[in-house]
């Protein structure tokens, strides 16, 4: 307070104590550091994963084309070691696609309902319950998939095994819906009320307001919601490990068991002795996973830019 009054009296020469000056500099530095840290961490993670994966390129057993396009995954074979991840990649992608085809309509629909149509009291209740849904640990979801969902699928479809692509997709959909809902709801809330009022004044029905005004203006936010949902699905490990049946094969139907890249890393990294080929290959599948999510983000970025240009 003293500083303040001094500077009031002498506006041409503001005086501040050394401590306060140093404090501000320090604070500025800390804030700048936290700003940069995200970039540093991402780069460090990428560097570490790639460093652990790199030695495999010099191994005789390894062939990049086979790694990407062969479905035979025999990392611990005695007679013929083969590292083909096609089945795992297809497994990851198929589970994610299935999960998204369920979660996106439900998630966006529920966000529109919560933000536009329901009563304030119901809105509060729904938001709390959806928050609660997002807080359920993935191992609990996996357990539900392994027990409840598996039995239901067997009795409804007559499939021989209940842990399969359908099971994993449903569990992942349930896990990503809360994320999609809360972010999409924020995006819809961010649309200025004047838009709604203008549309209603022009005689639009509720549905027309949502379809013609809200969805186009909240496009970016909604896309971000879907992307985070995809991110959650691709990266999810424990639940898919338990619910998909963990079988290395390219699925031919919804009732086939699959194995995903993430589940494979989780199941095998513990036993792979450090600096063995198997260990390096597992890190390379990590790089593959990284590239997959990066591609999804990049595509979304281009889509958003495309929308903006319009």
């Amino acid at each position: 307070m003293n500083d303040m009054s001094e500077s009031d009296r002498l506006p041409t020469l503001p005086k501040r104590s050394v401590v306060s000056m140093a404090g501000e500099k320090l604070l500025e530095f800390i804030i700048r550091l936290s700003g940069i840290s995200a970039i540093v961490f991402v780069l460090a993670i990428f560097f570490f994963i790639f460093r652990e994966a790199a030695p495999i390129f010099f191994s005789e057993n390894f062939n990049l084309v086979k790694f990407l396009f062969n479905a035979e995954w025999y990392p611990t074979s005695v007679t013929n070691v083969r590292y083909g991840t096609l089945a795992l990649t297809v497994g990851s992608i198929s589970v994610t696609l299935l999960a998204m085809s369920i979660a996106v309509p439900f998630g966006l629909g529920s966000a529109v309902y919560i933000s536009e149509f329901c009563s304030p009291r119901l809105k509060e209740a729904l938001k709390i319950i959806i928050e609660l849904l997002a807080a359920i640990p993935s191992v609990v979801w996996g357990f539900i998939g392994l027990t409840v969902m598996s039995r239901t699928i067997i009795s409804l479809t007559g499939a021989p095994v209940g842990v399969n692509l359908l099971n994993g997709g449903l569990i992942l959909a349930l896990m990503s819906v809360p994320i999609i809902v809360s972010i999409a709801e924020d995006a819809l809330k961010a649309v200025p009320d004047s838009y709604r009022e203008a549309a209603l004044a022009l005689g639009a029905t509720n549905w027309q307001v949502v379809y013609r005004v809200l969805l186009p203006s909240a496009k970016n936010g909604l896309l971000a919601a879907v992307l985070l949902g995809i991110g959650r699905s691709v990266g999810e490990t424990m639940a898919v490990l338990m619910a998909t049946g963990h079988a290395v094969q390219i699925p031919h139907g919804l009732l086939d068991s699959v194995r995903t890249l993430t589940a494979n890393i989780a199941a095998e990294l513990g036993e792979a002795s450090a600096s063995s080929d198997h260990y390096h290959v597992l890190f390379l599948t990590g790089v593959l996973l990284f590239i997959l999510t990066f591609a999804v983000n990049l595509t979304a970025d281009f889509v958003i830019r495309g929308i903006r240009r319009k």
């Binding site: 598996s150 067997i154 095994v161 079988a247 290395v248 068991s257 199941a267």
Partner: peptide
């Protein structure tokens, strides 16, 4: 010492193997 046929359900425990078999004819 030959390799397993791909597409088997690879369970994470002895008990899970028996559980899956008890549910699948």
């Amino acid at each position: 010492k030959k390799d397993f046929k791909l597409g088997s359900r690879d369970m994470n425990g002895s008990k899970e193997v028996v559980e899956l078999i008890s549910n699948t004819k």
